[in-house]
């Protein structure tokens, strides 16, 4: 993997800002690995995994619901880490801001997926699509917090000002992640406690189910890596294009201003109304 993360420190150079995080070859291999891994997960989760004694086939939703929730945590954790790195004067770089934004967008996608999958799983198991349970409500709050973060990132401003504002917002929003995670322990909830480990840290899961769940987590992490690299590349190219457009607009405005200055003496001579041939 060839990296090109270098501190830009407010550079206005468009080509430097479109620097990519990974080589095309790496992203391509990663993309194909995601596809193969996903196909294998479908076979393992829907065919190989044993049927749960209590929840029957509905339990197979665990292999997508739990990794989606894990990815939301991971994505928002990366956003918070990059935001902290941006705010730290020694590591301040717009690359971190861009990575934070890319990760947050994918986090929002997977938080929405977690909520939807939980709802689909809740209907056959709990008998309801939604309930005002602590885990569900804190997860919904997490979703809206990061939706707000993404909206904040779209407010036009100087890149450094926008990055600073977004980084502070990300560090505030990430406080909800541990609240979501520990909500099942802190409050009496309908949502079950940890799937793999109980309160006494003993494994509560059949070995085959545990291995397939682990495979699902690895697969989703690969998918996250692939998507975040692509999203980061896109943000870099869009920023470079915006920068170019701004530079072009400035050049046009300057040339307009220069041409109006050159053209200015003509109306002055008309206004004076000097007759041809008259003495100066």
């Amino acid at each position: 993997m060839t990296t090109s993360v270098s501190p830009v420190r407010g550079s206005r150079d468009a080509s430097a800002r479109s620097g990519l995080l990974a080589s095309r070859r790496f992203v391509s291999v990663l993309g194909w690995s995601c596809l193969v891994s996903m196909a294998l997960l479908v076979w393992l989760g829907l065919s190989v995994a044993p049927t749960d004694a209590v929840q029957k086939d509905a339990q197979r939703l665990m292999y997508v619901h739990v990794p989606a929730a894990w990815l939301a945590y991971l994505a928002f954790g990366v956003t918070a880490a990059c935001s902290a790195l941006y705010l730290w004067p020694r590591t301040r770089s717009l690359h971190y801001d861009r990575l934070a934004g890319a990760s947050a967008e994918i986090g929002v996608l997977f938080t929405a997926l977690t909520l939807a999958l939980g709802s689909i799983w809740g209907r056959p198991v709990w008998g309801t699509w939604w309930t005002w349970d602590a885990r569900l409500v804190t997860t919904a709050i997490l979703f809206f917090l990061y939706l707000g973060y993404l909206a904040l990132r779209r407010v036009p401003d100087d890149p450094q000002v926008r990055a600073r504002r977004s980084a502070i917002a990300a560090l505030v929003a990430v406080v909800d992640v541990p609240i979501v995670h520990f909500s099942v322990s802190w409050w009496r909830t309908l949502h079950q406690e940890g799937t793999v480990f109980g309160e006494d840290r003993d494994a509560q899961l059949d070995a085959t189910m545990a291995w397939i769940l682990l495979w699902a987590v690895v697969t989703f992490t690969l998918v996250y890596l692939f998507l975040v690299l692509r999203r980061y590349d896109l943000a870099g190219i869009e920023e470079a294009a915006d920068e170019r457009q701004l530079e072009r607009a400035i050049v046009e405005r300057r040339s307009e201003a220069a041409s109006s200055v050159v053209a200015a003496p003509e109306p002055v001579s008309v206004a004076v109304g000097a007759a041809p041939g008259s003495a100066p």
């Binding site: 829907l46 029957k56 509905a58 939703l61 997508v64 689909i120 799983w121």
Partner: peptide, 13 residues
């Protein structure tokens, strides 16, 4: 249950 499972997996993919 199978319908919920297929729906959930389909939604994810």
């Amino acid at each position: 249950d199978a319908a919920y499972v297929i729906g959930g997996w389909g939604l994810t993919a």
